[in-house]
Design a protein around this nucleic acid. Structure first.
Lengths: 254, 254
DNA sequence: TAGTGGTCTAGACCACGCT
DNA sequence: GCGTGGTCTAGACCACTAC
């Protein structure tokens, strides 16, 4: 009698909720507008708060919502296109890049880093910390590992740590002839220190961009950049946005 | 008195749990090994199952674990490096690419697609469905949108749908002169149909790679490829594999 | 059929941002 | 202090897989 055709497809509540909320966001809310709080939304939809939260989490993962403890849930602006492609074919720290050096320390390389630098476990590296800011918002935090062997002329006069030393390491890098680079993107979750720089909670989803820079037949530096996955869209190639200028192949013979 | 130094840093339980489990995975478990079930793990650590699950979810997001309903939780192998970069500078469907056409239908373009094709809302497009398989596992599902105007010579003889028609559309694409392309990567959650192809649950985290192909001064095609975020690392540039350690893969020459 | 992970509930308390 | 989202609990039932 009461059998509906939905018997065969018991769609989870949170999934259906997400769909309903998503459509409501499109039609009834403006960017930046604040939603009713979770307890009220849950009551309104007749579900437990945990279920409602499962739907909100998905929408936040997709960049539709932004949630801040103590404040509320707001409608997120469209993701920012952040260029990580061809236009950055120079060394990190080249003039005009959008990174801001924060700190630098020198110590033995962690095992995982040493492996990527094809060096031994205890080799000493400069570790440069940088932040990338776009439209006034922090979008990425980076750890740049530079073996001391890559920048032998770094003056001992430089400060032992801090932004000044970071700039010194970056300056020395520019003097090398780059032979190529190598990028990978994967999903990760923010470590505590990255989360702090990115104004997110630890464990927040991030896109981890790992870049290896080659010079003098060796891996001269490795960058591990952590982008906010909720607010960023990583773009490659010339036209990050809607610009369709003519594209000349720059397929360089090695 | 009983005040410990931890007062200032009330680390969440699930975060601490994740750390502990992560270290246990490194030292006590082999790839593919099956973990104790969630109820037992929760009891062993003295937390509620929901809390334990929060830690497992993070580890799965980071590609450390694999969970399958009705089966159990296993230790995941390292992520597979999937090339989405320079080596694929040809049209989709070019000889030797790792995609497998599945289906093709022709209909009016959805609004979002029409926008990327800089066309009108109702323009007719061929929608090609393809699957990418690596090491025997499905890693990505793609929807390739090709305006009928891009492949005017597609014979009417072709089947109205199915893999045969998909191959026809791809074949016609090869005849165009590519002027450039354009890629973006962002985090998303799997739609129901993609999830089925990727052997995941709807909502699973995925990396969405959007590519625009330019020819004859227009956007000749748009591809939206959905990669499993748990098992894939997207690589760009020359050297895809970072050669983490023993890599005795039988790289078959085709 | 037994055992797994997936969903859902109805509470509670905590940390944080504002005012 | 108050309201917000974040964490946590102790259950229950369901869907799926393998035997």
């Amino acid at each position: 009698m009461g059998t509906t055709q939905l018997d065969t497809v018991p769609e989870p509540k949170y999934w259906h909720l997400k769909t309903v909320l998503s459509e409501a966001l499109d039609s009834d809310f403006a960017v930046g507008e604040i939603l009713p709080n979770e307890r009220e939304l849950a009551a309104r939809f007749g579900v437990a708060r945990a279920t409602l939260r499962q739907a909100l989490e998905q929408l936040e993962l997709e960049g539709r919502l932004q949630r801040r403890r103590g404040v509320g849930t707001t409608v997120a602006p469209p993701r920012v296109g952040v260029d990580v492609g061809a236009s950055q074919h120079g060394w990190p720290g080249a003039a005009g890049d959008s990174w801001q050096p924060v700190d630098c320390v020198s110590a033995a390389a962690p095992a995982a880093v040493a492996r990527m630098l094809d060096g031994a476990a205890g080799d000493e590296v400069h570790t440069v910390r940088r932040i990338r800011v776009t439209h006034g918002q922090p979008v990425a935090a980076e750890l740049l590992y530079v073996p001391v062997a890559s920048v032998p002329d770094l003056a001992a006069i430089e400060a032992p740590s801090g932004p000044a030393r970071a700039r010194g390491v970056l300056r020395e890098l520019q003097r090398l002839v780059m032979e190529g680079q190598d990028r990978a993107v994967e999903l990760g979750s923010a470590r505590a220190d990255d989360a702090r720089e990115l104004d997110r909670l630890p464990g927040a989803p991030v896109l981890v961009v790992t870049t290896r820079y080659f010079a003098a037949g060796r891996t001269a530096a490795v960058s591990v950049a952590t982008y906010r996955a909720d607010t960023c869209r990583l773009t490659f190639g010339d036209s990050g946005d809607l610009e369709i200028s003519h594209h000349t192949q720059e397929r360089q013979a090695s």
